[in-house]
Amino acid sequence: MSDHIDVHKVARLGALAIGADEVGAVGQKLNAIVGLFDDLAAINTDGIEPMAHPLDQVQRLRVDVVIEKDIHQYVQQIAPRVEAGLYLVPKVIE
């Protein structure tokens, strides 16, 4: 089942750039890791519910009251690029 992993595709999904010279080595390691998962297919899990959380708890609800203050000047001190209170990014084309 462990298909040859498409390094370019998973890199794109993860917004990572993998250089042409690295693709081979990276692919080899990724395929070795994915190879570990082959065993999963053989395990009988019929009727077993997927377990997303360790404890069977339910979502707690927060009262709808404003508790946060304006902190933009403080938090924007650590931002790479801001102007007029806005975070700047290369032009977004729609």
């Binding site: 927060r62 709808d64 508790i67 946060e68 304006d70 209170g85 975070y87």
Partner: peptide, 28 residues
Amino acid sequence: TKTKIFSGASTAFGALPNTQACLVDLGM
């Protein structure tokens, strides 16, 4: 609602940019 779905920041429309974006909204 008065506040956001997953944070206690105000949802009021028309505030100055990023003045109603708390740590959770900013994805810190």
